[in-house]
Amino acid sequence: MREAFRLYFRYIGVSIRSQMQYRASFLMLSAGHFVATGIEFLGMWVLFDRFRSLGEWSLREVALFYGIVNIAFAIAEAVVRGFDTFSWMVKSGEFDRLLLRPRSTVLQLAGQELQLMRVGRLLQGVFVLFWAASALEVVWSAAKLALVFASVVGGACLFGGLFVLQATLAFWTTETLEIVNTVTYGGVETAQYPLTIYRRWFRRFFTFLVPLASFTYLPALAILDRTSAYGVPAFVAWAAPTVGVLFLVVSFQVWKIGVRHYRSTGS
């Protein structure tokens, strides 16, 4: 297992080195990404400036959601984007080459690329999170900090799992991968705000089917010392981020099914 990680980091090193070869371009890409994602927060700020509050939530509290979601998404994008090239690989037959190597396909695909430019989204998420954390009237304890950290990890796993599922679709069709973007990018848009503000079917979708709530709304209840309107017991709020990790594990199983399908039908 440790050996697999070593190989993964070796792969990543290759990717990082080739990106750093174009240093200026990397800086430009990251800066551009920073601005492109940061304007979302600007929009949020404008709306709060105009409307003062969002139901029972203040800007500082919503900023907490924003920060966690963006950091989690940035990590997932940076790490799992190697799977993006996958549909091209299936079409061109390059995927066979991966199967001919005595390593798991997940390791090889994840190791293909670590997108450094995603640091743009990461940074603006970090800034917003720190601002929110410092401005909030919350008693910060080690436990709460750990929960924030766990939420980010859980979120990164969940988004990562969605990207893996999106790539897995390429085993069956090369066309409707766009659909999953509604859930990933749409998910980011959605989870930046507390889920309580949405319609019921929407809430249910993003709680049970694509469990965004597990690393945003539910942990936030514990962090902000709020009680839920839906009668959610306290321990759920603390344990919720593990759902994201489970989601990722399930995605890998689905991926394996996809590989099995590929191996019995050719390409």
């Binding site: 709306l47 139901g55 509604t182 959605t190 503000i197 949405y198």
Partner: peptide, 18 residues
């Protein structure tokens, strides 16, 4: 489909603010 989804999200957000 993605755009319809986005439109709905934005409308719901505005609805909550209003």
């Amino acid at each position: 489909g993605t755009q319809v989804f986005w439109g709905l999200i934005r409308v719901m957000i505005f609805d909550a603010f209003y």
